[in-house]
């Protein structure tokens, strides 16, 4: 089977998972409710400011839920469907299949992020005036991201979209790596989703109760630059912007992605050796 055909098959396998639609339905309702529950008063460029802030504010939670649910069954799928024996006979090798699976995940991440941006655009377009796509960011800066103020909103949103897709993909590849160790998809969801949620809960309590204590600085650092911080655009806030530019963040993410991609391939290869008793 050629690369594109296999990509199509893997994509089909992914989007036919019913759990994704359960998550998508609940997340859509919650996201919509949260955006519309108490809108800020209208001001110039409020539409673009809100749109630039929505993902670092709450949007990344929903993206991560869908990533966890979608990726959790990516590897265990064949095993849980009783097709593992069939995969063993796949003539181009399972590494080829894993490459395709990882490419499928990139497309999935891009679609999920796109969906939530689309939802946010629809919600905010009902509240605010949409004019000002090519106005400069300095006209209404987002409290969450710190980029070159002379960028236009169009540039900023494109950048944010790319940032979140890459961050989500890093998260997805890490969950994929986790699924080499954990065999059942339900436990993958529990561990990946649970630790992400725990990070958010921890951050919430950290800020509220122990934020001033000396000991809090280490977990705070981990949270800030771990998956929660990465997906929450902490790599773009004013604190980080002093050390690393927005473009360098893309470079950093690209390096992490390549490493994780190769790590997963190596893990698969190593597991095959172990299985064969080499």
């Amino acid at each position: 089977m050629g690369f594109y055909k296999l990509l199509f098959v893997e994509g089909k396998k992914l989007i036919f998972q019913r759990d994704i639609y359960i998550a998508l339905f609940i997340c859509t309702v919650l996201f919509w409710l949260a955006i519309n529950s108490n809108p800020e008063p209208s001001s110039p460029f409020q539409f673009w400011k809100s749109l630039a802030s929505v993902m670092p504010w709450i949007g990344y939670w929903f993206v991560s839920v869908l990533i966890v649910v979608g990726v959790a069954r990516c590897l265990p799928f064949e095993r849980e469907q009783g097709m593992e024996e069939l995969i063993h006979t796949y003539k181009k090798g399972r590494l080829h299949l894993l490459v395709v699976k990882q490419v499928t995940l990139l497309i999935y991440c891009a679609l999920v992020v796109f969906y939530f941006y689309l939802l946010a655009i629809a919600a905010y377009a009902m509240q605010y005036d949409t004019g000002g796509l090519f106005a400069q960011v300095r006209m209404a800066e987002s409290p969450y991201v710190s980029v070159n103020p002379s960028w236009t909103f169009a540039q900023l949103l494109l950048y944010e979209y790319g940032y979140l897709v890459l961050a989500a993909y890093i998260f997805a590849l890490s969950i994929l790596f986790l699924s080499f160790i954990i065999k059942r998809s339900v436990f993958i969801i529990m561990i990946a989703g649970g630790s992400f949620a725990a990070g958010e809960i921890f951050y919430f309590f950290l800020l509220r109760y122990i934020g001033t204590m000396e000991i809090s600085k280490y977990p705070y650092f981990i949270n800030r630059y771990g998956f929660n911080g990465m997906l929450g655009f902490n790599y773009l806030d004013s604190l980080t912007a002093d050390y690393i530019s927005a473009i360098q963040v893309y470079g950093l993410f690209a390096v992490i992605i390549v490493l994780l991609f190769l790590l997963n391939l190596a893990a698969k290869r190593w597991m095959r050796h172990v299985a064969l008793g080499d």
Binding site: D19, I22, A72, G193
Partner: peptide, 9 residues
Amino acid sequence: TSWTVVILT
């Protein structure tokens, strides 16, 4: 898994 997704959300 469906139930775990519900709990997570």
